[in-house]
């Protein structure tokens, strides 16, 4: 009876349903079937198998990862790069947005914003190509360093493994710092201007206004962005790594994502690569939950304050 009713209603909505169903099919095929595909992390999959027919091996792939020296090397690199990105790449947009906010509306503000957003829209291939040119022995960085007298002769930074972490982090900051200010600027433009007026009458300087009005009011958005940043800690940028990695710097450049790519697609060890990917997503999820817990506490304290 109820079913019949449902059928009738459904038929009456058929044109509308026909619009939605392609999207539903799309999501099932391109999102949920790959999620099912994760089971190969617990199997020994070879090219001739189907996902269902491959034999189960339990946690064997995870055990191999645990003992894999190159996997741990990629973990160290990922953590180092992500930590530096968190330190510099997370704080830089906050500082920059405050400085931009303090500018009076005018052409200069517009120019700064327009230019600083631009690199975000360039692909990592383009930025990588530019970067290799800037850092080459005849590039601008060496020109400046030699010209100022810091270096006696040009160095090829791209073949020095030890420079890689800084190259990766600084180039990422260069590309994304401007774009990162947008969300903070949007938040700041929502702050009631009477706060600043009252502070001015009380004789607060610009710096005092920044530390006692702007920053406290941005606490929530900053902690939200921080949680998102922590969630991405183990997912270092694959695009960037694949452009900048070379045989001479790979000991410091290989990150988990590029390692999954290498082992899975270049060497064909699908099950092992999937296991590494899965382990990383689980750890990321745990990190987000923990960070969320702590920032919640911090925001509660704020309301007490």
């Amino acid at each position: 009876m109820k079913n019949n009713h449902f059928g009738k209603g459904f038929r009456a909505q058929l044109p509308l349903q026909m619009m939605v169903i392609p999207g539903i099919i799309f999501m099932i095929v391109f999102c949920y079937i790959p999620i099912y595909g994760i089971v190969i992390a617990f199997k020994s999959y070879s090219v001739t198998d189907t996902i269902a027919s491959a034999p189960w091996v339990g946690l064997e792939n995870f055990k191999i990862a645990f003992e894999d020296k190159f996997f741990w090397e990629s973990v160290v690199n990922t953590l180092a790069i992500s930590f530096l990105k968190l330190l510099i790449g997370f704080t830089a947009p906050i500082i920059l947005s405050i400085l931009i906010f303090e500018l009076k509306n005018g052409w200069f503000k517009k120019v700064v914003q327009t230019i600083s957003y631009l690199p975000h829209f360039l692909s990592w291939i383009v930025v990588g190509g530019m970067l290799l040119s800037w850092l080459s022995t005849s590039g601008i960085l060496n020109d400046i360093l030699v010209g100022v007298g810091i270096l006696d002769q040009p160095r090829n930074f791209m073949i020095e493994a030890k420079s890689y972490w800084f190259i990766a982090v600084l180039s990422d900051v260069w590309k994304e710092v401007g774009w990162g200010t947008i969300i903070y600027l949007a938040t700041m433009s929502g702050i009631d201007p009477t706060y600043y007026e009252a502070a001015k009458i009380d004789g607060a300087s610009k710096l005092q206004q920044i530390f006692h009005i702007t920053l406290p009011l941005m606490k929530f958005i900053i902690s939200l962005m921080f949680i998102l940043a922590v969630g991405g800690i183990l997912g270092s940028n694959l695009d960037q790594t694949l452009v900048l990695i070379n045989p001479l710097n790979s000991s410091h450049a290989e990150v988990i994502n590029s390692y999954v790519y290498k082992v899975g697609l270049a060497q064909g060890d699908f099950s092992y690569a999937t296991a590494v990917g899965l382990a990383v997503s689980i750890v990321s999820l745990i990190l987000v939950v923990i960070t969320n817990h702590f920032t919640k506490k911090m925001n509660d304290n704020k309301s007490v304050f």
Binding site: F30, I33, P34, I35, I51, G264, L265, F270
Partner: peptide, 10 residues
């Protein structure tokens, strides 16, 4: 999401 390899297999 399924990640890189399961998506590749799909």
């Amino acid at each position: 999401s399924g990640g890189m390899i399961p998506t590749y297999l799909l």
